[in-house]
Amino acid sequence: MKIKRLLTNGFRGLPDRAFDFTSPRTGAPADLVVVTGPSGSGKTSLLEAIVAAKEDVGPYGLKRSPSAFIRPGDAAAKVRVDWVLTQEERARVGATGSELSSESIFAPNLFSSIDHDPSLVALLGEYDVDPGVSKVEYFHASRRIPRGGAPSMATIGIPEGERLARLTRDDAKYALVPQYVAEASLGLHDQGSKRGAERLADAFAKLCRTRTLAGVEQAGRALVPRFVDARGGVVGPDELSDSERQALLFVVTFLRSGIEGSLVLVDTPELHIPEPEVGAFVAALARLGLDNQLIIATGSPGLVAGNPEALVLPMG
């Protein structure tokens, strides 16, 4: 599942225009789309428009008030999205073509949404951690792993609760990161011949150059993940640096949620990452899952320079 084109009208924080996500080299939706521009130019609003349109068609969670999306002074907002489906997705939801379009209208007095294509409704509303199920994932700009790993939402870890949290800005969706690391180290997330600990360690090494996963340690009644640096220094997840915790957050989310063939929205990937390393960090992030489309909102010049194959969309 990828986006080919997005058109907005009256959407808060965005101009009335079309955003083309196709690669000029291939004519297909670009795998890495980098949305750039100064603060306040609408980078985050573009990601929010995608989320709003997706949730209008096939929601994971509760719908927000339409007024949250309408530009001040306008009576309504409209978002049209041209989606491109894989052959497997078409077969799974019974779509008749590889390209489907949705049009969402947000207005205070509009109580029923437009009838959308049933196959698109089924595709966009489906959430399962099975890598064979495409999905939408949103990494918000202030994301963090909660210290101590205590969930702030009672339903986290329950499939329906996970689904509700995916496109929110609630950090509870990252609360079980340390638990997943401990479980993978014990072989609880093996997939056939692929050991969960090896998959996790390999993926973490792609995003983090300062520490490696060193297994788990008994601490009271809990099993706590341990990480080691080049000098042999060992720390737990709460003692990792902010940049190391960001790498762990991304890696575990990709593995735990089975992000393959999916749409991944990332706001400010440079969060806590040194500017000279941002380009390589995003390039590694794009290689974490197979056949994903990453749409990234950033103010980092190094990110663009380090990813020359990316489609760059300037804002403002």
Rank of each mutant, 00 (worst) to 15 (best):
K63N: 13
R90P: 01
P72K: 11
K43R: 10
A28Y: 08
I70G: 14
R71W: 05
K63S: 12
L46Q: 02
P72N: 10
A68I: 01
V84C: 08
V81R: 00
S67K: 11
V81G: 00
A53N: 09
K54G: 00
D82K: 06
L100W: 04
D56C: 13
S39V: 08
G97H: 07
V34T: 04
L110A: 07
V57R: 12
E48P: 00
S101C: 10
L85F: 02
E103F: 06
G97L: 02
F106S: 02
R92P: 00
V51I: 15
T36I: 09
G61Q: 08
S113W: 05
T22H: 10
T44E: 05
P24A: 15
A91C: 06
F19M: 13
I70H: 12
V51S: 01
D115C: 05
I114A: 11
I70L: 14
F111Y: 10
K43Y: 08
R71T: 15
S112W: 07
G97D: 10
S101R: 10
R90T: 02
A52V: 06
F21N: 03
T26C: 06
S65A: 09
S23Y: 14
K78A: 12
T86R: 10
W83N: 05
A77V: 00
A18H: 01
S98E: 15
R64E: 11
V51A: 04
R71C: 14
S45M: 04
K78F: 07
S23R: 11
V79L: 10
F69I: 13
A18D: 09
R12I: 12
G27Y: 10
D16S: 13
S65H: 07
F19P: 08
S104K: 00
T86Q: 03
P59W: 07
F111G: 04
K43P: 04
H116K: 08
G40N: 04
T96Q: 13
P108W: 05
T26Y: 02
E55C: 08
S65R: 04
G40I: 03
A53K: 00
G42F: 01
A77K: 00
G61L: 04
P24R: 09
G27F: 13
G94F: 04
E55M: 08
F19A: 15
G37T: 01
S39L: 10
A76T: 07
R12K: 15
D115V: 12
A68F: 03
R25L: 12
K78V: 15
A30V: 05
S113T: 13
P15N: 10
A75V: 07
H116S: 06
D16N: 14
F111S: 09
A76H: 10
I105F: 04
P29E: 09
P15A: 14
F19H: 14
G73S: 11
S45E: 02
A95I: 07
R64A: 12
R25G: 01
R25C: 02
E89D: 14
A107Y: 02
T44A: 07
L100M: 14
A52K: 03
L110R: 14
D56M: 14
